[in-house]
Amino acid sequence: MIIPLNIPVHEFFNDEELVAFSLANPELSIERDEEGQLFINMTPTFAISSSNNSELITELGIWNRKHKAGRVLESNGGFFLADSSMRVPDVAWIKLERWNALSMSEKKSFPHLAPDFIIELKSETDSLADLQSKMNKWIENGVRLAWLICTDQQLTYIFEPGKPTYTLKFEETLSGGIVLNQFSVRLSDILEF
């Protein structure tokens, strides 16, 4: 269950205070939208969602280890975005040159950076419309490729800057395109649904 707290964060939490609040509440998954509203997830992930997320991270991690192209981050890594939001994707990937440009203090916090690639995995309690809106926000803030994976529909919504959103069925091969060169996966081979 995600609880939206209608707290104008710009009045109560600057970025450093939001980091401190997150550190003081490690059991919570906290996000902030561009309007300053906090979203707090207090429910643990169901086993199937956790397993599917692990499979996605593993696939990306194997590709990344082979190509040494960047860094893979799991579902606890947050990012401050240009629109003043702080978002946490289920999976993120940052190109190596951009990762190396971060200072160690940025790496030990939520960097002011949009990942190059993100995945959101829709759970049973998520609203598709809300997640699609969130995906568009990721793209508007600089993400170059984003996948919204919906196991209930067995569809992946693909978002890229300047292109209309399109879908692929789980039996079809997803490609990382120019963002994740030579990365491809067929979700029907790795996910349970």
Rank of each mutant, 00 (worst) to 15 (best):
M1R: 01
L5A: 11
N6F: 13
I7Y: 08
V9D: 08
V9Q: 12
V9K: 06
F13Y: 10
E16A: 13
E16I: 09
A20T: 15
F21A: 09
F21V: 10
S22N: 12
A24W: 06
N25D: 13
P26W: 07
S29C: 13
S29Y: 10
I30L: 14
R32A: 04
E35H: 09
E35K: 09
Q37V: 13
L38V: 02
I40K: 01
T43H: 05
T43N: 09
P44S: 03
T45M: 15
A47S: 08
A47V: 11
I48M: 14
S49E: 07
S50G: 13
S50K: 12
S51Y: 10
N53A: 12
E55D: 13
L56M: 11
T58M: 13
T58Q: 11
E59V: 07
I62K: 07
I62D: 09
W63G: 04
R65Y: 08
R65N: 14
K66I: 10
K66V: 13
G70R: 04
G70W: 00
R71C: 13
V72H: 05
L73I: 11
G77Q: 08
G78K: 03
F79Y: 15
D83T: 14
S85W: 09
M86K: 11
V88A: 00
D90N: 12
A92D: 03
W93F: 13
W93N: 03
W93Q: 00
I94Q: 04
I94M: 13
K95M: 01
K95Y: 07
L96T: 08
W99K: 03
A101Y: 01
A101W: 00
L102E: 07
M104R: 05
S105Y: 10
K107P: 06
K107M: 03
S109V: 04
F110V: 00
F110I: 08
H112L: 13
L113D: 10
A114L: 11
P115I: 02
D116R: 00
D116F: 05
I118T: 15
I119G: 00
E120R: 02
K122V: 06
T125H: 10
S127D: 11
L128A: 13
L128S: 11
A129F: 13
Q132L: 11
Q132R: 10
S133L: 15
N136S: 14
W138S: 11
I139R: 01
I139C: 03
E140C: 12
N141Y: 07
A146M: 04
A146N: 05
W147H: 02
W147M: 06
L148D: 02
Q153I: 07
Q153P: 05
Q153Y: 06
Q154P: 05
Q154C: 10
L155F: 01
L155N: 05
T156I: 03
T156S: 02
Y157W: 03
E160H: 05
P161N: 03
G162A: 12
K163W: 04
P164S: 01
P164D: 10
P164N: 03
T165E: 11
T165G: 05
E171A: 07
E171R: 01
I178S: 15
V179Y: 04
L180N: 00
N181A: 15
Q182L: 02
F183N: 00
S184C: 10
V185N: 00
R186Q: 15
R186I: 11
L187C: 11
S188G: 08
D189L: 14
I190R: 02
L191S: 06
E192L: 05
E192N: 09
